[in-house]
Design a protein around this nucleic acid. Structure first.
Lengths: 99, 99
DNA sequence: GAGACGATTAGCTAATCGTCTAATTGAGTC
DNA sequence: GACTCAATTAGACGATTAGCTAATCGTCTC
């Protein structure tokens, strides 16, 4: 959970996810959309993989990244629901935050 | 937007928000729920204020923190909606991520 | 096998983060 | 005014982060 939010806290990584929202793209194609060096982008990809927000698939020389939309939605919606108004019994915070 | 996600990337701060979900609490009451020092908690409160997720209200010697639920929900739900399946026209990532 | 090319790893710097103790501020009380 | 108590600020420390260049690793094509 922390890793998802940390991944989302960087604008570059959010933009990568939004690009992948349209469909899979290679590391190089993604990097071309940004002004930073390829190694830097590679590090961002690693953070996204670590958070399980993307899937990397080898394709010859290239690596194709896919957005894992279900993981993203589950993480965010799950957290939003913990805060929803109208809940009968407020949850125990220790347990909630640990998830 | 980045600030909200950064604020949420720390488990301690998420737990603070969940505690405030039940109702306003003073800085000291909140700190008592955690094993870290008060100055450390004070720093966490500052991050949450910076992200506009809480409101601080002076009450004599104490400071009462309130959760700004609307800010939290708007930030998270707004982002979730940008990724919703079934959207007709995928958004332009540069603009989306900048918000 | 020798290049060429896509991508990552290695190694570095500067900046930020989470934590601590000690000192300071501000508000109430004797 | 002097004391007490709640909270923050100041300053330090180790760990992590985002960024760079240079080097390395895989895979494809002559």
């Amino acid at each position: 959970m922390s890793q998802v939010f940390k991944a989302l806290s960087d604008p570059t990584r959010r933009r990568v996810l939004l690009l992948l929202r349209r469909g899979p793209m290679s590391a190089g194609e993604l990097s071309d959309q940004f002004d930073v060096s390829k190694p830097t982008m590679s590090a961002h990809f690693a953070v996204l993989r670590e958070a399980d927000l993307v899937h990397a698939e080898k394709a010859g020389k290239s690596i194709i990244y896919h957005l894992k939309l279900s993981v993203l939605e589950e993480a965010l919606l799950g957290f939003v629901q913990a805060f929803e108004l109208g809940a009968e019994a407020p949850p125990k915070p220790q347990e909630e935050a640990a998830r």
